[in-house]
Design a protein around this nucleic acid. Structure first.
Lengths: 349, 349
DNA sequence: AACGGTTGGTTAATCGTTTGAACATGGTCA
DNA sequence: TGACCATGTTCAAACGATTAACCAACCGTT
């Protein structure tokens, strides 16, 4: 900056003002300064700027795992949207671990490393989230809401904090209709962790829809997973080990669906002949699977855009507004009527 | 910081020293300060610290697209390794666009937003890379080398800059052996952009290995893609449109392989009965494909770790050392002998 | 009693930017 | 002629941390 000032024959203040496009600088000077700055490749020191203005033009993104295709796509869209607005994105993997999440939250927020955080919360509520609320940090909840209890200042703040997530209700109703229509009666649900509101919600939505279609409560088995492939495999194995195994499986997440499919295959079961499978979360390559995987697709691009938009709103001091675009069911080949003789022992309790 | 100092009854300097674990502070004071800092949740202001120390404890990561499963996995590992060393990661999607890449490079590096950049270069050489070289920035080339011409200061610097990538030679030789052994004679290669060294290299490696197995040069068709699914589809369509279409396809990237598979399916061709397919890049779900996709797996975790390690080395001022772990072939079901009658016209030129 | 050494802490300068307030300069008007 | 304005630029004070240089108190020696 000093160099630019010297070369342009003006003070550093003028350089700053000129590059900021201030009205107070004459057009001639502005042009001259801008040109010289370009030539010498001057870029303001981000740290100095953030120290002075208390804004970093960076936002944090805490997801459980970018390797998860859903979050990968989400992160991609978020980065692009943010970049278009001049913001950089600091990426963090919480690994669904509340401790790691809180660590990131505090180092990003309390250390003024970013102006705000887009958070996919690992758990309903953690000390870190509460602290962020108490500090009135710029927080946007992504993909999952959190349970805000109490009525301290932090709680009220968190209650007002924007939540951007997909509404799965319609799609899950459709899932229930599809499965029930096909004749399935015993359904296995591999849910996200039930400690998270999103886990409970996805389960409740689907279970209710299933019940509405005349499925017996006792015929629905819900097993919690943890958003990872392995948990999908294990849950499927347990489901298959039941006295009367389900004829249709719903996996609450793409990775767990992949795990389920692997477990089914290992067990020598054919999809959809022996058991039907539906995934929550879609991927561009699910139609290459054997069989093509029927899935509930989340509106990823909209989620990403809304999240960034909500964050920018917060940063501008506007009143926070969340968003809830809707999921839709993508019917492919992994659902069929249940096999005719899947009941070894007709244990009608 | 002021608060901590006041509460602990010491100067701000002492707080700084104490938290930095300096020898010059007594154990008692250190403990007292640390405890108070923890209680009030004090975190040093990242900007101020970076202004003073000229180090951000952040590194940039520029990939073409995090939604690409390979880069997603890579990014995940990189972030975790970096976090374990106390570094944050700023994520950028270049979209394979040299302009965007250079923009990121300059805003990250010239703006002192990060201490160094892990770059997956979009093109052989760009002004931005040259500028980074001239500024002796901390740059680690990831996945792809670049062609350094000339012998200016920037060029020499860039020549010394660590390159972390997988060595594909062995695996590609194996690919050639597999294909040739199966009896394939006409091979289609959907390569990465040939404007990139990695594109040329992957092609050359495979082509040479193919030739070594007695395949005729004229029977090898190389079509460049752009690492995106769509380009895989288009290239496949063109390959299939040839007078004598290849009986085996090699896609230079996971996404392009997915595109190829879709195009094959659309064309009514069965894999591997009608045409065999091998992908470069593996994914945990490739074995769920129909058929399970044979692929060359890159040692992603090693790449990520080596890259971060190389960067930390650079930052410590050590002599830069790259790394080159090896790929390996994962044989699954997408390769078979060519169909018996795949030659409509026996045009033995 | 004076002196050098150690221990544990403080002072003050500095990093690069932004920005409200002060300041030239030249023009307009009374 | 001077008072007053408008315009364009500069001054200087922050922002929050780090760290070289300095200092006070104490201890053991001679």
């Amino acid at each position: 900056m000093r160099d630019v000032a010297r070369l342009a024959g003006v003070s550093e203040a003028t350089v700053s003002l000129a590059l900021a496009g201030s009205e107070r600088i004459s057009d001639a000077t502005r042009r001259r300064v801008t040109e010289i700055a370009r030539q010498v490749g001057y870029r303001p020191h981000a740290g100095a700027r953030s120290l002075r203005t208390d804004s970093t033009r960076a936002i944090g993104l805490i997801v459980s795992d970018v390797a998860n295709p859903f979050f990968a796509e989400l992160a991609g869209h978020i980065e692009r949207t943010a970049a278009a607005e001049g913001y950089s994105v600091v990426l963090c993997n919480s690994d669904e671990d509340p401790q790691r999440q809180d660590g990131y939250l505090s180092s990003l927020l309390a250390g003024s490393r970013v102006d705000g955080v887009l958070l996919v919360p690992a758990e309903a509520m953690t000390p870190g989230i509460r602290a962020a609320g108490a500090a009135e940090a710029n927080l946007v909840l992504l993909d999952r809401p959190i349970a805000v209890r109490g009525r301290g200042a932090a709680a009220t703040w968190l209650r007002g904090c924007p939540v951007v997530r997909a509404s799965a209700g319609e799609a899950l109703t459709e899932v229930a209709a599809l499965l029930a229509g096909l004749g399935h009666r015993r359904i296995g649900i591999i849910a996200p962790p039930l400690s998270t509101p999103v886990g409970r919600e996805r389960r409740d939505l689907l279970v209710d829809a299933l019940l509405a279609h005349g499925i017996e409560p006792g015929d629905i088995t819900v097993l919690p997973g943890d958003f990872r492939q392995h948990s999908g495999e294990r849950a499927t194995e347990r489901l298959l080990g039941q006295a009367e195994p389900p004829t249709a499986l719903f996996a609450g997440d793409g990775l767990m669906a992949i795990g389920a499919m692997k477990a089914l295959r290992r067990a020598g079961l054919r999809v959809p002949t022996d058991v039907s499978l539906i995934a929550f979360d879609d991927a561009p390559w699910f139609d290459l699977f054997d069989p093509p995987l029927t899935a509930v697709a989340q509106p990823v691009a909209e989620l990403a855009e809304s999240a960034v938009r909500a964050m920018l709103g917060l940063l501008r001091g506007e009143s926070p507004a969340g968003a809830t675009p809707t999921c839709h069911l993508v019917r492919r080949g992994s659902c069929a009527p249940p096999a005719a003789i899947p009941q070894p022992t007709s244990t009608a309790h």
